[in-house]
Simulated scan of single mutants.
Amino acid sequence: METKPTEISSSKMFEGYNKRYRHYSPTLGCSMTFYIYFPPSPSPAHKFPVLYWLSGLTCTDENFIIKSGAQRAASSEGIALISTDTSPRDLNVEGEADSWDFGVGAGFYLNAKQEKWKNWRMYDYVVKEVPKLLSENFPQLDTSRASISGHSMGGHGALTIYLKHLDKYKSVSAFAPIANPINCPWGQKAFRNYLSENKADWEEYDATCLVTKVNNVPTTILIDQGDADNFLQDQLLPHKFEEACKKANVPLLLRYQPGYDHSYSFISTFIDDHIRHHAQAINL
């Protein structure tokens, strides 16, 4: 099976290119797609730093590329955008598509421990496989200069991955992240099914738990949260993460944006701030 990525589409945008690729993932045991936005290059030998974007429940690798408008700021700042899918696809596991908040489109950026969901290893896919794939196949990318961001379930993924790998990522940001999944219905459902009942395993994928265990977070964590988000009170719980950051003396900028909801209308409004946040950290 072809593990080397094959280009399947290309479109020019802000003088750069959105390019979509397909490859076979040994980590997940299926064929996967991902997007790279390549900014315009000042020279043939130039290498771009990368910003990984992790999307939310029900999304694919396409949502961010099509809806966010992040390419404008990425083009001007000279940052390549990497948008991955949110779960394995087409494995035909019984029950994988029974609900929108678990299974297909809902990988939660963890490594499942339950045998039935053994292919759900999005944590290893994002942290290990994709960076290696990029460094081996795209010489114009400098994966040693990387940051990570995401939305909702992807915000949860970005925060947890960053907090576990402060050496790998220069900065992190999130839009409306699931900030304390062990205490919300989405997280409890996912963790119970993917990880079983061991709460210690759950805490390994909870940013509010992880932030209390880290030392010397080098850059401010940026979170934007709409105050008209229907999921704010029962699913997202950013105030829990904020409390944990204060106790751990971790720098956090949590901005509540009045009137904004959970959609890409919210993301596209503030995405330029996030791109600049990462550009500043990457170029330090």
Rank of each mutant, 00 (worst) to 15 (best):
M1K: 07
K4F: 06
T6S: 13
S9H: 13
S10G: 12
S10Y: 10
K12Y: 06
H23V: 03
S25G: 08
P26I: 04
P26V: 03
L28T: 07
G29R: 03
S31K: 09
M32I: 09
Y35M: 00
Y35Q: 00
P40T: 01
S41F: 00
K47Y: 01
K47L: 02
L54F: 00
G56P: 09
G56L: 04
T58C: 07
C59T: 06
T60Q: 08
D61F: 01
E62K: 12
E62I: 06
F64D: 02
I66L: 11
K67Y: 14
G69S: 13
G69F: 09
A70F: 13
S75C: 04
S75N: 08
S76T: 12
E77N: 04
S83F: 00
S83L: 00
T84A: 00
T84L: 02
S87W: 03
P88H: 03
D90G: 12
G95N: 09
W100C: 06
F102E: 09
F102V: 07
V104W: 13
Q114Y: 10
Q114E: 15
E115H: 12
W120P: 04
M122L: 13
D124L: 06
Y125A: 02
V126A: 01
V127C: 08
V127E: 11
P131Q: 12
K132H: 12
L133R: 02
L134N: 08
E136P: 08
N137K: 09
F138Q: 05
P139T: 07
P139Q: 06
S144Y: 02
S149L: 05
S149N: 14
L159S: 12
L159R: 10
Y162I: 06
H165L: 10
D167V: 05
D167E: 14
K168L: 09
K170R: 14
K170I: 03
I178A: 15
N180L: 09
P181K: 10
C184F: 09
W186N: 15
G187I: 10
K189R: 15
R192V: 02
N193E: 14
N193G: 14
L195S: 07
S196D: 10
S196A: 13
E197W: 01
A200E: 15
A200R: 08
A200T: 11
D201Y: 07
E203S: 14
D206C: 15
C209D: 09
K213N: 13
V214R: 04
N215H: 07
V217M: 10
T220G: 04
Q225S: 05
Q225K: 03
Q225I: 01
L232G: 08
L237Y: 05
K240H: 14
A248K: 05
A248D: 08
Q257N: 12
G259H: 07
Y260Q: 08
H262V: 01
S265P: 01
F266T: 12
F270W: 07
I271K: 13
I275Y: 02
Q280T: 12
A281K: 08
I282W: 03
I282H: 05
I282Y: 02
N283I: 03
L284V: 10
